[in-house]
Design a binder for these strands. Sequence first.
DNA 1: AATGAATGAGGATTCATTCAT
DNA 2: AATGAATGAATCCTCATTCAT
Lengths: 195, 195, 195, 195
Amino acid sequence: MTVTNKKVRRKKDQILMSAIKIVNERGYERATMEDIAAELQMTKGSLYYYFKNKNDLLYQCHHLVLSRAIAEHESHLLENLSSEQLLRKMVGTHINFAINEREIFNMMIDPKRTFDDGQLESVLLLRTKYAGLFDEVIRRGIAAQQFERSEVVLVRMFILGAMNWVQQWFNENGRFDQETLIEEYANYVLKLLKK
Amino acid sequence: MTVTNKKVRRKKDQILMSAIKIVNERGYERATMEDIAAELQMTKGSLYYYFKNKNDLLYQCHHLVLSRAIAEHESHLLENLSSEQLLRKMVGTHINFAINEREIFNMMIDPKRTFDDGQLESVLLLRTKYAGLFDEVIRRGIAAQQFERSEVVLVRMFILGAMNWVQQWFNENGRFDQETLIEEYANYVLKLLKK
Amino acid sequence: MTVTNKKVRRKKDQILMSAIKIVNERGYERATMEDIAAELQMTKGSLYYYFKNKNDLLYQCHHLVLSRAIAEHESHLLENLSSEQLLRKMVGTHINFAINEREIFNMMIDPKRTFDDGQLESVLLLRTKYAGLFDEVIRRGIAAQQFERSEVVLVRMFILGAMNWVQQWFNENGRFDQETLIEEYANYVLKLLKK
Amino acid sequence: MTVTNKKVRRKKDQILMSAIKIVNERGYERATMEDIAAELQMTKGSLYYYFKNKNDLLYQCHHLVLSRAIAEHESHLLENLSSEQLLRKMVGTHINFAINEREIFNMMIDPKRTFDDGQLESVLLLRTKYAGLFDEVIRRGIAAQQFERSEVVLVRMFILGAMNWVQQWFNENGRFDQETLIEEYANYVLKLLKK
DNA sequence: AATGAATGAGGATTCATTCAT
DNA sequence: AATGAATGAATCCTCATTCAT
């Protein structure tokens, strides 16, 4: 990779961060290219040097966030933890992303509406991978006879849903802080899974 | 109520149903007044005879759906059921709405972005009422010593989130049919709550 | 004229009064048929029973107001007054109309923009007639050697303009009341005309 | 000022001139953004690159014209002229603007209907300043004992009204040319003011 | 005579996208 | 690499007008 390419890479990342921020604040449709550019004191025209179009830009945001979440989960999987400990960590990671990357995480929700076919395939792949990480832990726990045997996919959906919803109501100044929330949610998750 | 008012009422309802459908298909921002009108073979101009503007129309969709869901829950509350039976019914009602009124139910998600102050107040009131119905059942169960004593609000959020998420992945032709889904989810909910 | 026709006549007049009021408040373009109808607790559809279209309605307003002003001036002309006395009365009449029928009087200003050919002709006829009344007095005064010989048309334009402008700044609660204003303006007019 | 800013300035001015022309032809409400753009062979979208909205554009037209008129009057005030000579020049300037910037000058008439609060304040300030220039000359003349002592404000209103009205009837091909008109009007004004 | 309902032609505004420089 | 400028398609909304009842 040439120096120039590195620069481009860095700029792209800056733009992605800016876009993530703006989209998180305003939502996909209301985030304009102008807004995203202004955040970086660029003009919107310049964005098109780095990204084919708005869709492409937003797709890459999505990809970035999801990849990071996956990476974080994977690092937990490598630690030598019990299923319970592991799951607690994953609950923490997930809720952190859900709260702090609200809108981008939301894109996961209904990617069909936004992405074109090629992008969609890639996104769905990542989603599947992401979900698979949870399935993996659940299966490990069942195998270790710590978790009750059950429809893995269904219970995973239940759990992910519960956690995603957090972003709808969680409020930094509210009754619960993020840490307590994570702990309690992890307890619920484990109650659900354990024998 | 005069004949005319009934007619207007009926027409308004038709428009609302059409709007609900279109919004469910395309999402709030992408649903145009033209689309909504076309669905009923009207012209967009006519919509403005019945609704002040797009926002008003969408607000009324939201209000309608939420009111209906509340009414259904309330009818269950009047039946003489055990907390467990009641909760199973409410899970059924909720998941039905979540699946079949997808986007409108989604408006609940982040009304701040869409509604103006007056509307917002009314929407938040309904949301609170809706959530309160679940709290009520949970409290009943705790009082009857069938459910474990716990942070009612938090566990309710967990449950509602899990159920809302269903709309993201549920697919009529998938591995589970709606009925099985509801039953399994009710089981999870009860496992979470019971001692 | 049949009873029915009389009724229609009365209704038309009511509508004209309503239209005059609304147009005076909001201006020609901003006065909607709906506004005008609402003032009389009618629906806009009904207006079309009485008037061909908005243009026609507004034309008739204009015609009505101008006719009344002319009638009032003519009645003064019949009284046996000196040119000076007569002119004072006419100044009073004109300023009253200019203030109290603001916008309709304003239509006189540039009728070309609003009216179609047939209407225009009739309006211009009335305008000419209206202006002619002032010319008449001025000529009488000159003939009676009370007023200075001068370009009658030009001085009349000067005077009418001065009086029309009153509506732009006159304010009931301002420094001058309407009566004082009229008296002072009449003084100016006479200073202009007298030898 | 950078080159770019100069270009923008020039373009803005072109647009303003175009807008002034169109508004003078059609009036405020009937002048569409499309019309204004077409005059310059631009698209209406481009106008929004230079002006926030129609209101803003029209406000700036108004501001421009009024500022120019004020500047012209002020240059006369600096010349060493008698009150009479000065007033004659000002009559000329005013009538020229009234005839040649018809509608824009007319915006002065009832700005309340068109402008928002911030703009209104600025417009009223300019109007007051404009009127003050005439008051100034009149007072000078009174002080120099060339003009009769009188209600300065009232007589100034009278005079301005008379001159504004010119635009309603003056016609290049009519009986009077602009120069004669100005001379005669100046005579009237002086007859009104002089002892 | 009156009206409720519908319509369609405009008009203001926004914004992703393009492109010459 | 970046930008200023322009564009045009899309979208909301208004309102005079029509017409069946």
